[in-house]
Simulated assay, not measured.
Amino acid sequence: MKGWLRLLGLVAFVGLGIVIFRAIRQYREDSAFDVPQATSLPGEGSRRVISPELLSILADPGDKGPVELITDSSGKEWLVNRRNGFRYPVEDGIPIMLLEEGEKNKDESLIQK
Results as ranks from 00 to 15, higher is better:
Met1Val: 10
Met1Phe: 08
Lys2Gln: 12
Gly3Val: 12
Trp4Ser: 13
Trp4Val: 10
Leu5Tyr: 08
Leu5Ile: 05
Ala12Arg: 09
Phe13Trp: 10
Val14Gly: 01
Gly15Arg: 09
Gly15Trp: 04
Gly15Leu: 03
Gly17Asn: 03
Gly17His: 03
Gly17Met: 05
Val19Asp: 15
Val19Gln: 13
Val19Cys: 12
Phe21Ser: 14
Ala23Ser: 07
Ile24Pro: 00
Ile24Arg: 10
Ile24Asp: 05
Ile24Trp: 08
Tyr27Asn: 14
Tyr27Asp: 15
Arg28Asn: 14
Arg28Ala: 10
Glu29Phe: 08
Glu29Tyr: 08
Glu29Thr: 09
Glu29Asn: 11
Asp30Ser: 15
Phe33Glu: 15
Val35Thr: 13
Pro36Gln: 08
Gln37Cys: 08
Thr39Tyr: 10
Thr39Ile: 06
Ser40Gln: 11
Ser40Phe: 09
Pro42Cys: 06
Glu44Gln: 11
Gly45Lys: 05
Ser46Val: 06
Arg47Ile: 14
Arg47Asn: 12
Arg47Ala: 14
Arg48Ser: 07
Ile50Trp: 00
Ile50Cys: 01
Ile50Thr: 02
Pro52Ala: 05
Glu53Val: 13
Leu55Pro: 02
Leu58Val: 06
Leu58Glu: 05
Ala59Met: 09
Ala59Gly: 07
Asp60Tyr: 00
Pro61Ile: 01
Pro61Val: 02
Gly65Met: 09
Gly65Asp: 06
Pro66Phe: 02
Val67Pro: 00
Val67Ile: 06
Glu68Thr: 10
Leu69Phe: 02
Ile70Cys: 03
Ile70Lys: 04
Ile70Phe: 06
Thr71Arg: 14
Asp72Lys: 13
Ser73Met: 11
Ser74Glu: 15
Gly75Pro: 02
Glu77Asp: 15
Trp78Ala: 00
Trp78Ser: 00
Leu79Ile: 02
Asn81Trp: 00
Asn81Gln: 03
Asn81Glu: 01
Arg82Asp: 04
Arg83Asn: 13
Asn84Ile: 12
Gly85Cys: 01
Gly85Val: 02
Arg87Phe: 00
Tyr88Val: 00
Pro89Ile: 01
Val90Cys: 04
Glu91Trp: 04
Gly93Pro: 05
Gly93Ile: 03
Ile94Ser: 04
Met97Glu: 06
Leu98Val: 12
Leu99Gln: 02
Glu101Trp: 07
Gly102Asp: 03
Glu103Tyr: 07
Lys104Cys: 06
Lys104Phe: 06
Glu108Asn: 08
Glu108Tyr: 04
Glu108Gln: 11
Glu108Asp: 11
